[in-house]
Simulated scan of single mutants.
Amino acid sequence: MTEARQRLGKKGEDAACAYLERKGYVICRRNYRCRYGEIDIIAAKGGELSFVEVKTRRNLNFGLPRLAVTYAKQQKIRSAALFYLQQENRHQQMLSFDVIEILVEGNVARLHHLPHCF
């Protein structure tokens, strides 16, 4: 991954965290990695734990950012989430798998939160 893409991804994740916090979420972890995969953001609100995938794009040349969260990617996120729950002993937890897509056009960024989408 190029440095410019890494910076764009980090900015997107920062914006997603700020958005979630404004909506009352508490950020538990960022960039959680384990042998099963990575989860961009793990956040909690109202007794529910949300596993959030963030997709940031500069244009729509490859379609909406959410379309990059393929079935295979969803399965990796689920596996990593189950591992996280086991490690943190949080078995009796309400769960949500969300996507936050961010489209950056010039100086304007549009964020769209898709809760419970997979």
Rank of each mutant, 00 (worst) to 15 (best):
M1H: 15
M1Q: 15
T2S: 15
T2P: 11
T2N: 15
E3A: 08
A4L: 08
A4T: 10
R5K: 13
Q6A: 12
R7Q: 13
L8T: 12
L8V: 07
G9D: 08
K10F: 08
K10C: 00
K10N: 09
K10G: 04
K11S: 13
G12F: 10
G12Q: 06
E13T: 10
E13N: 12
E13M: 11
A15E: 13
A16P: 01
A16N: 02
A16Q: 01
Y19F: 15
Y19M: 11
R22M: 12
K23Y: 12
G24D: 12
G24N: 10
Y25L: 06
Y25Q: 02
V26H: 05
C28T: 04
R29C: 07
R29L: 03
R30I: 06
R30V: 11
R30M: 07
Y32P: 01
R33A: 04
R33D: 06
R35M: 09
R35G: 10
Y36K: 02
Y36I: 00
G37Y: 09
E38N: 08
E38P: 01
I39R: 05
D40Q: 03
I42A: 03
I42N: 01
A44K: 07
K45R: 14
G46C: 09
G46V: 09
G46M: 02
G47C: 04
G47W: 03
E48W: 07
L49H: 11
L49S: 09
L49M: 15
F51V: 06
V52W: 02
E53T: 05
E53K: 07
E53N: 11
V54K: 04
K55N: 06
T56D: 05
N59T: 09
N61C: 05
N61H: 14
R66E: 05
L67E: 14
A68M: 02
V69T: 04
V69F: 01
Y71V: 05
Y71C: 00
A72G: 03
Q75G: 02
K76Y: 09
I77T: 08
R78L: 10
S79Y: 03
L82K: 10
L85A: 07
L85T: 08
Q92Y: 12
Q92V: 01
M94F: 09
L95E: 07
V99P: 03
V99I: 15
I100K: 03
E101D: 12
I102L: 02
V104P: 02
V104I: 14
G106Q: 13
V108C: 11
A109F: 14
H113M: 06
P115G: 12
P115Y: 14
H116T: 03
C117S: 06
F118W: 13
